[in-house]
Design a protein around this nucleic acid. Structure first.
Lengths: 336, 336
DNA sequence: ATATTTATCCGAAACGTTTCGGATAGTATA
DNA sequence: TATACTATCCGAAACGTTTCGGATAAATAT
């Protein structure tokens, strides 16, 4: 493993000059530079990142902090797409991305704050962490640039990224109303989740836009879980036969709702329309394909990483970033 | 950001003693140790990983090298599960895992060999890389412990991990035969892929086991791509009306085959049985649920990482590791 | 009493970079 | 000719750890 010293020795120059040549400083003669580059190539020299990161203050690693990789078995693909997008950006600037999950089975000694300090992290994309998590404030205070996914918040060194959930939800429900649905059941996500609040607000606004009264009896909680949504939908279909559509705050919950409908002998969309949220890969393969609100998580990850870099370079302070969404009726939403 | 020097100063001992205390060496008095630990906690001290990795030879980072994160949009979830498993193991020993993809759109200057050198990688799990990739030999030669996913190979410092593809394929086809299928179309993956060769061998063996002649006319290539498989299946259904089942070497291809059947006005499994491979999350949500060969990619990732560590510690040399599989008929395979 | 072990600590070097503050020699300016 | 500038190079310190090879003093063995 060739080091910079080896290159210097073989090239007959100082370590300093090698470093400056390889980092494109302009105070090294073009001929010596060429020579150094040639020698470096011959020796298969690649600079050691640990050493580099040690001496430079700004580190070239971004953290992706999340609650757990295997939550839901990753079936919804959301975390994956966030990661892919984040990595795609990091790659363009030769940064690394380091994963950190908080929900390890074996009680973890380290918090993600320690993780960031230990790795001298340049910035962190955070998802699936509760806003009241005690460590979160510590992380914010540490000055590490942060981007929160799907949680509304902006202070000086923390940004947030998401679609405009309120608006998207409003459009989604309006779409159902345009299909002549009037009594629309709603299965919401975890109560405290920011997106739940936003989407519920959008649901309410769309109803109001169309002079449809809000009925809390047909708004139930599914906790973003398929099985919980199955229960919720079963209850909904049981108690209220006027419901013609069920709007779920996630596709995974929509899957539960569809199963509930089938188990009640109802067919989708003939007897009941179902609308999901997220557009997970599964959605379009379902038969009929699942109507949903499409979110581009890859894009979110990409822009989250980009924002991190900007904040690290002081080119931007914390801000809210919105990504485009799209309402798709597909096959599970029917005109009545 | 407190360093070890700060701790030493505050605790009134030398840097050496702090280091040895915190790393549980036994030549430091229990009282001083307690004191040091207390001071370290007070100062929120966490050791800097770059510095540590710099001085220790064995590095605490494992690489996950793959062709691309967004190939197929990651719909099949395979890469994700491998990563999750790998991370799960790495986490238990406080290792990091670093991603590296080879298919970046913008021509990448760095090879994964350089990546490993640069990061002083302790070992690499490799998937989706062609065995004839020129860099691969360089990586092997570099002495970095490697585990190849789904590629049969073992030399001294490279292991491989997979299910027993030949055996699994044989069982899968036997299952179809047990369902009284005799003329079984086969859509294989990329020709050079090791798993294609293995699964095709298994297909042949099962036929032979049951005195069914092998007919190359009903074995076509789908390149592991849904659309390519759609074409292949269409052709198969067109040219040979005796086929009662189509066996695909991946679930994504099975999706294409199902679509082809539907477009031909055939229903699954009444008119044609379809069997996939992998058990992607989608499979069980399909209607009817897709018969397939289940592979536990999470487990693969986990054991791959574990093997990496063993090789790094010289507790094991390169070897072949097999993971359990399971043949699932589910709804798309019908008894005739 | 002397010699040897043991428990506990520390100084300094090393890991592989980057970078600050010059140093040198040649060139242009006054 | 003396001065200032420019281009090119380099020595040494610094980043935050770990670890080798002692050093000291107390305890034990001879």
């Amino acid at each position: 493993m060739a080091t910079i010293k080896d290159v210097a020795r073989v090239a007959g120059v100082s370590v300093t000059t090698v470093s400056r040549a390889l980092n494109n400083y302009d105070d090294v003669n073009v001929n010596t530079k060429e020579h150094i580059v040639k020698v470096a190539k011959e020796l298969n020299y690649v600079p050691n990142r640990a050493a580099r990161n040690l001496v430079k203050k700004e580190n070239t690693t971004l953290a992706f902090i999340l609650s757990g990789l295997m939550k839901d078995g990753g079936r919804d693909n959301i975390v994956y797409r966030l990661l892919a997008g984040m990595y795609a950006f990091a790659e363009t600037i030769d940064y690394d991305v380091a994963l950190f999950t908080t929900d390890s089975a074996h009680q973890k000694k380290k918090s993600y704050v320690d993780f960031c300090l230990e790795h001298n992290i340049g910035g962190a994309v955070i998802t699936g962490i509760r806003l009241d998590d005690p460590y979160l404030r510590d992380l914010f205070k540490s000055g590490t640039p942060c981007v929160l996914v799907d949680v509304d918040m902006d202070s000086d060194n923390v940004s947030s990224i998401s679609i405009n959930n309120e608006q998207a939800s409003r459009e989604a429900v309006q779409m159902l109303i345009n299909h002549n649905h009037r009594r629309i059941g709603c299965i919401v996500g975890r109560e405290e989740a920011d997106v739940t609040i936003k989407r519920l607000a959008g649901y309410g606004m769309a109803l109001k836009d169309n002079q449809i009264p809000y009925d809390e009896d047909i708004v139930v909680c599914g906790d973003f879980l398929e099985d919980k949504a199955y229960e919720a939908a079963s209850q909904l279909l049981e108690q209220d036969s006027d419901i013609t559509a069920i709007y779920c705050f996630s596709d995974m919950m929509a899957l539960g709702a569809i199963r509930a409908a089938h188990d009640k002998g109802l067919s989708v969309p003939e007897d009941i329309s179902i609308l999901g949220f997220d557009d997970i890969p599964l959605a379009e393969y379902l038969n009929p394909p699942l109507g949903t609100v499409q979110q581009d998580f890859y894009e979110m990850g990409y822009h989250a990483a980009r924002q991190l870099l900007r904040m690290a370079k002081d080119e931007s302070r914390g801000k809210k970033i919105f990504i485009e969404h799209k309402v798709l009726a597909r096959g599970t939403v029917r005109m009545i």
